[in-house]
Design a protein around this nucleic acid. Structure first.
Length: 593
RNA sequence: GGCACUGUAGCUCAAUUGGUUAGAGUACCGGACUGUCGAUCCGGUGGUUGCGGGUUCGAGUCCCGUCAGUGUCGCCA
């Protein structure tokens, strides 16, 4: 037997027993006469003692032992001498006196060790991921991830969901994100696509009568990465029949309540708050607002229209918007130079023309280099509307609706973090609903589906499809946690007539729609029940429940920003023979450029 | 594709703002030490400053290019 116990479970109750432990050497403390070894596994650490009374076998075998060796120790559990307890570890009241020590495997001098204080650079961590994953924070995250997924599955099972696996090799549907393509050997020149989501399969499952479907589904999107975005990620994918949006939201409300209780021991009040997309954009400039703090956008366009300040006047007169936010006590953090930084930020990242700002003086008046362009009453009106207090910093963007939303969202996010307007440990759950059906693409002058082309419009907005598609709102809902989109879903179109109309608006004629989604259109005609669903980003949920800022730390083997795996060195070149079998010829590589 | 930050010993960082032989902690190697738990003490090995070019009497430091990691905008139905 290689071990009788783990390194985290021995305590005073085991004193006197002879046990066998196996694990990694976390640290060796050499005192000449004796040695202390902290033996580690994922359950904890146990102190192993070798002293002059230990058998020669152990004395000899321990000689070459260094960090991260894998060893096995047989010995007697002993109470530690008085005053020598270590309260930092679960086994701190006992230690193991060695009777036999075996090196199960040596370890090269590692580039870094799991208990090291300063984390190595990310590329090194990813290259030696097996070492990085030995770190306690990584192990805790992966354990929590496992618990979260189990809680999700338990909840779904309790609610009669059926777990169904859908294919990884599917069909390319060029709408939306770029597909990862897989060449077919049997059909040279043809390709499978990895699923961006199991969307169509799960709808087909509804038509097939499996009224509650769930899957922990791996999804793939060949787009650029972010701190919260990986090219391959995991969704809790769900679909339900005979439901409306409230039913789906209610189901997820219950799941979040269970997760919060099971995982974080937080009691969530249900129903979770909801706001419409319009409201979110107006108040926060974004469809996933962070509601852990206030600081809402204030519209000043009407005041701006009255002023002599040409920048504001011209923007207001041309139908654009003058909107701002007020950073509480913002002057403490943002000096003139800090404001210059914010100005650069909104210009470079969001294309804003500039940033107008005012300091709120002790007497409550607004002051700034541009203040002379305003009447005192106008400044007072701005201050009143923004509820500006002495010490605050008022920031105003005069631009199109879109730019003011983006820039103010960016500013709000920054000041929230930099002025510490919220406790980063708090959790905030909410819904954003009634997304627009379509976005207008000004370049191609056409409508694009905001969610996906199977999204059902609100019943009340059906008429807009014919008259003013931009006004049509969807039966869509996003779950927002701490300013992140943690999931999103819609009620689907089950009526083929409406589906055809939507395809038409998206520029897909009957022929093109049949070509791309024919199988779904066919299926919809064979008794499709009303249905809808949602997909939760599991990696993001894990990130948020762990209070992490980086999704790579929630995934065992993540990719770098350039979508490579530094450990496996993927992607890689393949054998010419493989390409030949696939009928593929490489005509251009990165090296050509 | 754009912008920004980072890259110096195995690892984490420093180098007085362009100046002489690039330092420290840790790891590693050797030695001392019977109770430590980030053990301690003594000694030692270890460097193409990511790579290529340029400016300069002189470059880790400045400039250009490039590679890699990260953040972000575009992108992500």
């Amino acid at each position: 037997m290689l071990r009788t116990h783990t390194c985290g479970e021995l305590n005073k109750d085991h004193i006197g027993q002879t046990v066998t432990l196996s694990g990694w050497v976390d640290r060796v403390r050499d005192h000449g006469g004796g040695k202390f070894i902290d033996l580690r596994d994922r359950y904890g650490k146990t102190q192993v003692v070798i002293d002059p009374d230990s058998p020669k076998q152990a004395m000899d075998n321990v000689q070459p032992v260094r960090n991260e060796f894998v060893i096995q120790v047989i010995g007697k559990v002993s109470e530690r001498p008085a005053g020598q307890d270590n309260p930092k570890i679960s086994t701190g009241q006992i230690e193991l006196h060695v009777e036999e020590l075996n090196v199960l495997n040596a370890c090269k001098t590692p580039p870094f060790v799991p208990n090291q204080k300063d984390l190595p650079n990310e590329d090194l961590r990813l290259k030696h991921r097996y070492l990085d994953l030995r770190r306690k924070p990584m192990q805790e995250t992966l354990v929590l991830r496992s618990r979260i997924i189990k809680a999700m599955r338990d909840y779904c099972e309790a609610n009669d969901f059926i777990d169904v696996e859908t294919p990884i090799l599917g069909r390319s549907t060029p709408e939306g994100a770029r597909d990862y393509l897989v060449p077919s050997r049997v059909h040279n020149g043809q390709f499978y696509a990895l699923p961006q989501s199991p969307q169509i399969y799960k709808q087909i499952m509804m038509i097939a009568g499996y009224d509650r479907y769930v899957q922990v589904a791996r999804c793939f999107r060949d787009e650029d990465l972010r701190a919260d975005r990986q090219p391959e990620f995991t969704q809790l994918d769900m679909e339900m029949s005979f439901v409306d949006g409230d039913d789906v939201i209610g189901m997820i409300d219950g799941m979040m309540q269970k997760l919060a209780k099971d995982v974080l021991d937080i009691d969530l009040q249900l129903p979770l708050p909801r706001m419409t997309w319009d409201e979110a954009m107006t108040r926060f400039g974004h469809d996933a607002p962070d509601l852990r703090f206030g600081v809402e956008i204030v519209d000043l366009t009407d005041i701006a229209a009255k002023t002599e300040f040409r920048v504001f006047r011209s923007v207001a007169d041309s139908g654009k918007f003058v909107r701002g936010i007020c950073a509480p006590n913002g002057q403490s953090k943002f000096s003139r130079r800090g404001i210059d930084d914010l100005t650069k930020f909104v210009q470079e990242d969001f294309g804003a023309k500039g940033l107008a700002w005012f300091r709120v003086e002790e007497d409550g008046t607004l002051n700034s280099t541009i203040a002379k362009n305003f009447q005192a009453e106008e400044l007072a009106e701005i201050a009143t509307r923004m509820e500006a207090k002495p010490g605050d910093l008022v920031m105003i963007i005069a631009d199109t609706w879109e730019v003011s939303c983006k820039a103010l969202y960016g500013l709000r996010k920054r000041i929230g973090a930099e002025l510490e307007l919220y406790d980063p440990k708090t959790m905030n759950f909410s819904w954003v609903t009634e997304f627009p059906m379509f976005e207008h693409d000004p370049e191609a002058d056409r409508w694009i589906a905001m969610h996906h082309p199977f999204t059902a419009p609100l019943e009340s907005d059906l008429e807009h499809l014919d008259t003013d598609p931009g006004k049509a709102r969807a039966q869509a809902y996003d779950l927002v946690i701490n300013g992140y989109e943690a999931g999103g879903g819609t009620i689907r179109i089950h009526d083929n007539k409406i589906q055809e109309k939507v395809f038409g608006l998206l520029g897909l004629n009957a022929e093109a729609a049949q070509e791309r989604f024919g199988f779904l259109l066919d299926a919809l005609q064979y008794g499709a029940p009303p249905h809808g669903g949602i997909a939760l980003g599991i990696d993001r949920v894990v990130m948020l429940f762990n209070n992490l800022e980086n999704i790579r730390d929630c995934i065992a083997f993540p990719k770098t920003q350039k979508a490579t795996d530094l450990m496996m060195e993927a992607p890689n070149l393949v054998e010419t023979l493989q390409l030949k079998e696939l009928g593929i010829e490489i005509t251009k590589t990165d090296d050509d450029a």
